[in-house]
Nucleic acid binder design. Structure first.
Length: 470
RNA sequence: GUCCCGUUCGUCUAGUGGCCUAGGACACCAGCCUUUCACGUUGGUAACACGGGUUCGAACCCCGUACGGGACGCCA
């Protein structure tokens, strides 16, 4: 970390529209990682200036999502709506210094202006009709908006940390409204004032904001403020390449939580979408902070790949702490009917967790795979398990049951007993294990039969075997 | 329509002029391991959007074309 880098401040600035989008989550992650990488600060600003769509509940969803992902913020959350007075003050300051002017156009007038421009094959832009007009000509009874008097010649240049040098001719841009006729600020203006006041040094956001940046730069210049550095990261698209939306499956981070994904897996996946460090695929939080740099962010949009996320989730489940996974499973099982979820079931699940987590890719799968441990006799049988329990198998189960009744209930002893039984009766181990698995779990799939039997315990295991042998 | 951005296996990506007969990961296929399912492991299929140029040499530099995305609001 270099000297003076502690001054670096990033922010995540979502508008509270009811969910924390997976794309927004990645933007937040990149801001967080960059701030941590350079020892700076990561701030949150809720852009709730659209009072119609903004609710406390929506803000809560964002906070909950960020917390779940472990993206901790520094300093107090800033609510943009609370800063309206300050935004207006700056707008009037620009007015007084001649950098802005009042515009008395009505919404209807502007709409017609745009329509006509499009009809004539021009860009739908404001024509600047009040830019140099005498305010004395203002129509009575109309409240004016305030527009920035943007430069009309030359070009505006953004040195973007991801996209490189991006420039646009000033003639391409019109004079944007910074303060509405009702005195409230527009988004573009509020963002600039807030970023300046919050001391933001690096603006990392989706590249859908790239063209907005030119206009924001014009405001920074009009106020004579230092500009932050900009980094516009590519968007995430759905599997079909179109903008990510509900029809692509889960897009809200809290939805991923429900579907059984671990936050560290989601973060790792999101990190690798648009960022890379050689062939590195599995990167935990600490390593991500150590390695993350904006210079390594790609320019092209990427697509959401649920299969890869799922694979990564399996890796993180295998790495996860057994107690933590047991808690997660118990929580999910609590919503399932016909289970006996006491301390006995909890102990069984915890005992088998090292084996269970080897074969689950999501917490939903993990909970389903563990559910048999909390069931009561008679077990519900899957059709394939039912098919295992032939008349011959039932006879075999009776014999295995008595053999097991005489062994210690350790994994090693059970394994030895079963192998001995198979050998003595001239069977392959699989011929013994599968009927047992059906009898004990009601399924044809489970962890190793020895560990499964041990986790159930002598009494329960023998009860299930004799129930199935009947 | 105008402006801005992008384009390497199906997907995420490595690659910054010779190390590339293009590497890794996921997915897919086949084999091994095995007590089912996973895990693990071995191998396989599969890409530089297209066309020009610059150069002894181009995935990499330049120019076009195509395709994709984004922005053009008194939304954010």
């Amino acid at each position: 970390m270099t000297q003076g880098s502690t001054a670096i401040r990033t922010r995540f600035a979502p508008s509270p529209t009811g969910l924390l989008h997976i794309g927004g989550a990645r933007t937040a992650l990149f801001n967080y990682l960059y701030s941590r990488h350079v020892g700076g600060a990561f701030l949150l600003r809720v852009e709730d200036t659209d009072r119609e769509r903004s609710t406390d509940a929506a803000t809560q969803v964002i906070l909950e999502g960020l917390d779940w992902l472990g993206l901790t913020r520094d300093e107090q959350t800033v609510f943009q709506s609370s800063r309206a007075d300050r935004h207006a003050v700056v707008a009037y300051q620009l007015l007084e210094t001649g950098k802005a002017y009042r515009c008395w156009c009505s919404a209807e007038e502007l709409r017609q202006m745009r329509e006509q421009a499009v009809a004539e094959g021009r860009s739908p832009r404001y024509d600047g009709r009040w830019r140099d007009r005498d305010p004395a000509e203002a129509p009575a009874g109309v409240k004016p908006s305030i527009r920035l008097k943007a430069p009309q010649e030359g070009e505006t240049v953004v040195e973007d940390m991801v996209q490189g040098t991006v420039r646009v001719a000033n003639a391409e841009m019109d004079d944007m409204i910074i303060l509405r006729s009702d005195g409230t600020p527009t988004y573009l203006h509020a963002v600039v004032v807030d970023d300046h006041d919050m001391g933001i040094t690096h603006v990392i956001r989706g590249d859908d904001h790239l063209t907005n940046t030119f206009r924001q730069v014009q405001i920074f210049q009009a106020m004579g403020w230092d500009q932050p550095r900009f980094a516009h990261i590519p968007l995430i698209h759905g599997a079909d390449g179109a903008k990510l939306s509900k029809r692509h499956g889960a897009v809200s981070v809290l939805e991923f939580r429900e579907q059984g994904f671990l936050p560290e897996a989601v973060c790792n996946y999101l990190l690798r979408l648009g960022w890379s460090h050689g062939d590195l695929e599995v990167v935990d939080r600490d390593e991500a902070i150590r390695l993350f740099d904006i210079a390594d962010v790609n320019r092209g949009a990427s697509r959401m790949d649920y299969a890869k996320l799922t694979n990564l989730n399996g890796i993180y489940i295998r790495k996860a702490d057994d107690d933590r996974l047991t808690r997660e499973v118990l929580q999910r099982l609590a919503h399932q009917p016909h289970l006996s979820l006491g301390s006995i079931a909890a102990a069984r699940i915890r005992a088998l967790m090292p084996q269970l987590k080897e074969r689950a890719k999501t917490l939903v799968e993990l909970a389903n795979a563990a559910a048999f441990l909390a069931r009561v006799v008679p077990l519900p049988m899957e059709p394939k398990a039912e098919a295992q329990l032939t008349a011959e198998a039932k006879l075999l189960l009776r014999d295995v049951g008595s053999a097991l009744g005489e062994t210690d209930f350790t994994v090693a002893a059970i394994d030895a007993a079963l192998r001995g039984f198979a050998e003595a009766t001239g069977r392959k181990l699989g011929q013994v294990a599968q009927p047992l698995r059906a009898a004990l779990t009601g399924s044809t799939v489970s962890p190793g039969i020895d560990a499964t039997i041990a986790a159930l315990g002598r009494e329960e295991a023998l009860a299930r075997i004799s129930a199935a042998a009947r």
